[in-house]
Write a protein that binds this DNA or RNA. Structure first.
Lengths: 111, 111
DNA sequence: AAGATGTTCACCCAGATGGGTGAATATTGC
DNA sequence: GCAATATTCACCCATCTGGGTGAACATCTT
């Protein structure tokens, strides 16, 4: 499942910041890096992780690498979260129904 | 930010499965473990990670540890995802507006 | 051709992770 | 008191991670 990569990529605050930065539009590696207190090399590695997760794409133009963010893995993540929450709600609803049914357990014995 | 722990905890498929399993209601460590091909010890460690993220809580009853899932970190995650997507949409809207404005650049020169 | 710029590659390092095993601890039940 | 059960603790191991540095490579500019 690609959720693995999406979640682990977004689990790092630096990568979340890079991703949100790229939501603002195309940027070079250097442009992204200058906002962070870590080395250019480290930022480059973070970008590679985001690429592996499909959250960022790269377009090489000469010596510059132009990066763009891709929202689709985020959509997939949102779908998983909502699905999990929905499943949960249904379980809670079932529990409530069960408790309600147990509230008057004589309904079967007193027709 | 607690998102760090939530995301990295959910980045592992075994832990997502444990979490979803616990959405079905309270269960013991052994109950959870028997559904997975890994050792009880490893499951215990996964549970500790989920606890650190606040996704799971533990209630000790005698020699049994009863586990329950907590949906609140998931709500927090959903909020972050939606916020990021909303920010993105606003950026895209702004971009579309910009492109639309550039579609008729003579509007200022031809009153 | 030579230098400056943008980016990655190949390492090093400390620490976390995910898996395992075997022993320790706590509780229940006989 | 003693055996079985439920769980964790203390390790071992290979791998990944996030940071660093210095060198290499590719490209632009002069």
């Amino acid at each position: 499942m690609s959720l693995d990569h999406t979640l682990s990529a977004l689990a790092d605050p630096t990568r979340r910041a890079i991703f949100q930065r790229l939501s603002g539009g195309e940027a070079r590696v250097t442009d992204v890096a200058e906002r962070f207190p870590i080395s250019l090399n480290s930022v480059s590695k973070h970008i590679r992780v985001l690429e592996r997760a499909g959250l960022v794409h790269r377009r090489v133009a000469g010596r510059e690498h132009l990066l763009t963010a891709d929202r689709r893995p985020l959509d997939e993540l949102a779908a998983w979260v909502e699905q999990t929450r929905a499943f949960w709600s249904s379980r809670l609803d079932a529990l409530e129904a069960l408790l309600a049914a147990e509230d008057d357990p004589e309904c079967k014995e007193q027709p």
